[in-house]
């Protein structure tokens, strides 16, 4: 057996999209720091393309789900994690429609003290970095006085807000033994990161216009995935499992619980899925 050949194979894990379907390869989300140059360029290209679309396939439409103008997001309640998982799922599909195979990278602020350079450098590959700043053009809505015209950040300038890395906060969340405690603890550090970044990222109504929002939330979703793997069956309260989350299209909470059924996995997460045999 040639181990050399095996090492050259990309890691592939599969799941069945529906119970009777053939196993299909899952997309793997990665840390932004571990993306290859090509993967990062592909991701930027996907973001650039959806930013250019002024219809329901476009970034501005998705950004509007969270705050202005639609305000569908769920915070500070048990729907926080399912809603944002669904949100990332639908956006990632839109990105993949433009550049097949791209996935949302995560920003691990439990270890990083600053915004990753992939999202903070003004230039990338000789052009403006679309991950650093984005225009704010509210979908199908006339601009009002006082609205920001582009995203902004002011990391560390919100008074008295602790900055990353949030290693202790992450560890505290991971020690939770039930969904409610985990959800509250992870949304707490989620809030802190938003407010620490500041600017439009520090306001619910505008935060999702910043591409950094999705790297932050990929890390929140990754935290939930890791915690789920360690706590099988520790689901949200039964009373919300049939709730239809306000996204386009709507999706029930129950359908967000298994990331494999949504077609993705996080690199580095320990888990086992049925093989293809």
């Amino acid at each position: 057996m040639s181990t050399g050949n095996r090492e050259k194979q990309p890691l592939t894990i599969t799941a069945r999209p529906t119970p009777n379907a053939a196993p299909a390869r899952l997309n793997v989300r990665k840390s932004v720091d571990s993306l290859t140059a090509q993967e990062l360029a592909d991701f930027r290209r996907a973001v650039e393309r959806v930013l250019a679309l002024n219809d329901k396939r476009g970034f501005e439409y998705f950004a509007g789900w969270h705050g202005v103008p639609l305000g569908w997001c769920q915070h500070h309640d048990p729907l926080f994690l399912p809603w944002h998982r669904a949100y990332l799922y639908w956006l990632e599909l839109a990105l993949q429609s433009e550049v097949p195979g791209v996935t949302l990278p995560w920003w691990d602020w439990s270890k990083d003290a600053t915004i990753p350079s992939a999202y903070s450098s003004a230039q990338a590959d000789g052009s403006q970095n679309v991950l650093a700043k984005a225009p704010i053009n509210v979908f199908n809505t006339e601009r009002k006085s006082g609205w920001p015209t582009e995203t902004s950040r002011a990391p560390g300038r919100a008074p008295q807000v602790p900055g990353p890395p949030y290693q202790q906060e992450w560890a505290y969340a991971m020690k939770a033994t039930n969904y409610t405690d985990f959800s509250q603890r992870i949304w707490s550090v989620h809030d802190t990161l938003h407010v620490w970044v500041g600017g439009t990222m520090g306001q619910v109504d505008w935060a999702a216009y910043d591409p950094l929002f999705f790297a932050h939330h990929a890390n929140i979703d990754r935290a939930w995935r890791i915690w789920q793997a360690a706590h099988p069956g520790a689901n949200p309260p039964a009373s919300i499992l049939d709730v239809s989350l306000q996204t386009d299209p709507a999706i029930k909470v129950q359908a967000t619980l298994e990331v494999h059924q949504l077609g993705y996995e996080y690199a580095g997460t320990q888990s086992t899925v049925p093989g293809s045999a």
Partner: peptide, 25 residues
Amino acid sequence: DEATPRTAEQRYAGYLTVFAHGDCW
């Protein structure tokens, strides 16, 4: 006050951050 060390000796219990909406648009 804001100058008080956030330590166990000062009976500091922790912090909470609230990601809020800002102005009504």
